[in-house]
Design a protein around this nucleic acid. Sequence first.
DNA 1: CGTCCATTTGAACCGGCTCAACTTCCGTGG
DNA 2: CCACGGAAGTTGAGCCGGTTCAAATGGACG
Lengths: 245, 245
Amino acid sequence: MASDTTSIKCGECPIRHRAVCSKCEPNELTSLDSLKYYRTVEAGQTIVWCGDEMDFVASIVSGIATLSQTMEDGRTQMVGLLLPSDFVGRPGRAQAAYDVTATTDVTLCCFRKKPFEELMMRTPHIGQRLLEMTLDELDAAREWMLLLGRKTAREKIATLLAIIIRRDASLNLKADGGPLEFDLPLTREAMADYLGLTLETVSRQVSALKREGVIELRGKRHIIVHDMDRLLEETGDDSDGGILT
Amino acid sequence: MASDTTSIKCGECPIRHRAVCSKCEPNELTSLDSLKYYRTVEAGQTIVWCGDEMDFVASIVSGIATLSQTMEDGRTQMVGLLLPSDFVGRPGRAQAAYDVTATTDVTLCCFRKKPFEELMMRTPHIGQRLLEMTLDELDAAREWMLLLGRKTAREKIATLLAIIIRRDASLNLKADGGPLEFDLPLTREAMADYLGLTLETVSRQVSALKREGVIELRGKRHIIVHDMDRLLEETGDDSDGGILT
DNA sequence: CGTCCATTTGAACCGGCTCAACTTCCGTGG
DNA sequence: CCACGGAAGTTGAGCCGGTTCAAATGGACG
């Protein structure tokens, strides 16, 4: 499972510079350090169910989780993808508003809600950072609304791939050397739930991109991009990702 | 146009208790008072264009505005509906990320960005309130993602009507007396852009609801709801709006 | 009364969904 | 080592909801 994180000090934390605590001074970190506890969740397990009483908030330390909503008849829509450093839970709210599910093994840095809220009152840096992060998430949600409301299946798939690539690039910073390649962190079904499609349509569009030589599949999940420009065109977004603007 | 608001004191402001300033102490209000200026925009006018340099932030005092994104080929998706007390702009960002358009005459309470950001640093209450508001908007955006990704045209229309009714109820608090009725603040096209549909589909679904006796139209924009329970069923959401839960 | 714009309605089309069969890839146990 | 079972993914065929294109209707305003 996840590596042993029981004794990591905040100062050495891998998400130290991006998470909700990133603006904190050393003394503020000490408070957090004494408050926090780690929790690991196996791939596929649900972290919280929508409607559950939630007595903690947390940062994702490693792994990937999803936020999703489900209607009575089973239709589900993913409404967020949580990556390392992302925040789970809402200060000032008792029940979870969404299902939170681990898609890979996940390690959480948790804080009991009450003490965290009190600390937040005394520590503006936390609230400031949380505001920034929330505004970023709001932007991401709105970009996703355009995708869900107006893009074609083809554009949706291309956009998702482009986003995953961009994220990988910004983390692994493996620059523009060889042919881009990466592993899909999501099953076809999860992709479908994210994109507002059926898994069959996802599969067909991925196959089509393969058939046309834009991408190549190695196994089910590993993707090699042969024609990045073409992929970006297929997203339907303007500009070339901001390079030529 | 909009009423003369040039000399309103913050203490007497109609959105005093809901806007970004709602947590402020009297002395903090004084600072805001000296910083603010009003601006009115006519119905149909664009307040800011996506990409524009934005040197101010603002609260909506009266009227309704929309946030929307447009693709090169003209497809547009509304990503937010701004009502009185809602906040426009993002502290710490230079360019507008969306088109902001007045759908009715709008009055804005503006602050130049720089001074506002400085005031925010000194006044945690503003940041705290902005965080609350942003979290609420994020929830609304995510609810909208479910609608865009998974709901049928019929459900989308019913949901939009239900939301407008709920909002009216919470503002006008006209309680559950006579038959619910209200004016649509949006054209069919704006509704379509909001719901990720075409205006023809919107029109057809509204007509269908009328034909089935769920609602009645008086003119193009005025709607009378004859069967609220039925309308709520048609939204596809679980529960009866939380009343019976 | 005529013009303009919002809205409605109709008819044909098509993208994505549904249902169903098949394939691949695993892990597990004989 | 292979057989088995199950989960994940692929592919096909037909259908249907929503779009597209086009024309008609209605309402507000000069």
